[in-house]
Design a protein around this nucleic acid. Structure first.
Length: 571
RNA sequence: GCGCCCGUAGCUCAAUUGGAUAGAGCAUCUGACUUCGGAUCAGAGGGUUGCAGGUUCGAGUCCUGCCGGGCGCGCCA
């Protein structure tokens, strides 16, 4: 968009003054404060610093060679050497008119599409999904949506925990304590009950723990009955996951669980040993990182002394499979902060195992969800909060609010609104904070109708739809755009920045930038709404304002969709 | 002990990764409803960015040392 056009004009000007400058660093971005201008570059200062030049003088030299006539009234040099671009109002109006004609949607598809594998959510079979899964699921889904919108090829893969030592215990529990009637009634509750009693039993009774080990060995050896039970548990769990993903509107292209890689683990370790990446230590196969100071104290075990494999081995096999199957340019893992060391190890081992692989590996980590007491978020009785219960409560609370605000709507309407508002509020509260910080979970804050919340944004959208209902406006927007009022111009300019925001989200894996953009957009819209009547305006202004409303609604809807949040015509 | 992360207004969080006078919401106070949805908007007060140094045109952001907190550290995932 405009930013790219300005960058494209700026680069030759910089190159003319400094022929050896790295033009990739020459970037234009929106000004933090409209008083400075509309777009700015700080690159000239950085270049001046490298070369010990006077930054303002360098900025002036670049400015003298700069031709941005088609879009800007003028450019200014300010501060220590900022170069500020001041858009021609007609340029803004033209960009909106083009959008109204359907020529663009305020962003540009990437000129260099990549294939990206996104690994997120990863619940465990036979355990309920809980708050610990929510950030991974919501962040991962949002990144997938944003990358796809920008034109990348995205493959989402749910690495379900369907293998491991817990299945020995679960099989013992299944054989000893299964209540078939309960399983029929609420399969997942029964699975959970089994897990809890057998887990407690194993802690107290070494004989039960031994029985669990024996069942695990039988399962791994392919025992028919144990495999049947195991598969049944996976099936029941998957239907439970599907229910939750359905409520969240989250979709996976693949759900290749840990067990899928089980057959390939011996070969992974064989290769690692053969390539001298791993070596024997205390009976285990271990990768040491002698050349890396930060990892030197933390060797990675890829095969345990007893011959079993662990999660590092599975993750390596998974990487290898993804590489061979999808040939991605990038693989992204969305997990909590505690797994930083693990992924650092896995990525390092992988580089030594496949030194020629070009794939970019990213661990996108996030902080914890805390309760109002600042400790990990739990129920009043101290249990982990189940995701299903959390979503129920979100919808229930949203239903109360909708019923209080809009009692005339039918029950079905209010329930549908409560679903969209409740789920949207939970998602938005999760996406809004910087992902790397912990955040305090608060129903009251996330469901508030003012402040930076999903309901506030949905409300802004609903108000626009209300104008269209009231004015019986169904026709496509008119491309005749006039931006006379300052509120109109401010709103219009912000619409132009949608694309940069999407690009930043994708580049840094931070959907919270999009949240902040949306909040600003909604604020600018309501200011426009307060001071610029739409339906009552004279015809030319009215048509232009209808267009502004239409385009704003379109961007709100598109941006919320990138966050995985739906909009409503009424709420 | 070692490593990673964090510390910003009374509270909850931002700050486009080294950019311009650190911004929002809640709470407090003052205004605006014969007005397209007041579920709103306009405004006020509130800060030595944990502390002390350093790097430079410029630091909440980078480097060093403290203080306080969270998490992780060989056969769990």
């Amino acid at each position: 968009m405009l930013r790219h056009l300005l960058e494209a004009a700026l680069r030759p000007a910089v190159a003319a003054v400094l022929p050896d400058a790295d033009l990739n660093l020459v970037q234009v971005r929106p000004c933090p404060d409209p008083r400075f201008g509309d777009y700015q570059t700080a690159a000239v200062m950085a270049l001046a610093k490298q070369r010990h030049l006077n930054p303002r003088q360098l900025a002036a030299d670049v400015q003298a060679r700069l031709d941005v006539q088609p879009w800007c009234n003028h450019t200014t040099i300010a501060g220590a050497g900022f170069l500020n671009f001041h858009l021609n109002p007609q340029t803004v109006a033209n960009a909106l008119a083009a959008a109204a004609r359907g020529e663009h949607r305020f962003f540009q598809p990437t000129p260099a599409p990549r294939t990206v594998v996104l690994d997120f959510s990863s619940p465990n079979v036979a355990k309920p999904m809980h708050v610990g899964h929510i950030r991974s699921t919501i962040l991962g889904d949002s990144l997938a949506r944003t990358l796809r919108l920008l034109g990348h090829r995205v493959i989402t893969d749910n690495h379900i925990g369907d293998w491991g030592t817990q299945f020995g215990m679960l099989i013992v529990g299944w054989k000893r304590s299964l209540n078939p009637a309960a399983l029929n009634r609420d399969p997942f509750a029964e699975l959970e009950r089994l897990y809890q009693i057998i887990h407690a039993e194993c802690r107290q009774n070494p004989a039960t723990l031994e029985a669990a080990r024996a069942e695990l060995v039988k399962l791994q050896a392919g025992d028919d009955e144990n495999r049947r039970i195991w598969q049944e548990m996976i099936r029941l769990s998957q239907s439970q996951f599907d229910t939750i993903y359905g409520r969240l509107g989250v979709h996976f292209d693949h759900a290749l669980g840990e067990s899928f890689y089980n057959p390939s683990l011996p070969d992974v370790v064989r290769q690692l040993i053969h390539q001298r990446v791993a070596r024997e230590s205390d009976g285990a196969q271990v990768v040491f990182f002698d050349d890396d100071p930060s990892l030197k104290p933390h060797p990675a075990i890829v095969q345990k002394r007893d011959g079993a494999f662990n999660y590092a081995t599975t993750d390596l096999a998974t990487l290898d499979y993804r590489l061979r199957t999808w040939h991605p340019d990038e693989i992204i893992y969305v997990t909590d902060a505690r797994q930083q060391l693990h992924f650092s190890q896995v990525f390092h081992v992988f580089r030594r195992w496949h030194p020629d692989a070009r794939v970019r590996l990213a661990h996108v980590w996030f902080g914890s969800i805390l309760g109002e007491d600042g400790k990990p978020f739990k129920t009043r009785s101290g249990d982990t909060v189940k995701l299903a219960d959390l979503l129920d409560e979100a919808e229930e609370r949203a239903f109360q609010v909708v019923t209080a605000k809009n009692p005339d709507l039918s029950l079905d309407q209010r329930k549908e609104i409560a679903r969209v508002v409740g789920i949207g509020a939970v998602k938005y509260a999760d996406l809004l904070p910087n992902r790397q910080s912990d955040y305090v979970f608060s129903w009251d804050r996330m469901l508030a109708l003012n402040g930076n919340t999903a309901p506030y944004l949905q409300y802004a959208y609903a108000r626009i739809r209300s104008i269209f209902r009231k004015g019986q406006l169904a026709q496509p927007p008119s491309p005749a755009v006039r931006l006379d009022a300052p509120e109109e111009m401010a709103l219009a300019k912000h619409l132009l920045n949608f694309g940069c925001t999407l690009e930043t989200v994708a580049a840094e894996y931070r959907p919270n930038y999009l949240c902040n953009y949306l909040y600003d957009l909604a604020g600018l819209f309501t200011r426009f709404y307060e001071s610029c009547p739409v339906l009552k305006a004279d015809p030319p202004a009215r048509a232009s304002r209808v267009t502004l409303c239409q385009l704003t609604a379109q961007v709100i809807q598109q941006a919320l969709d990138s966050l995985g949040i739906r909009v409503l015509d009424q709420m």
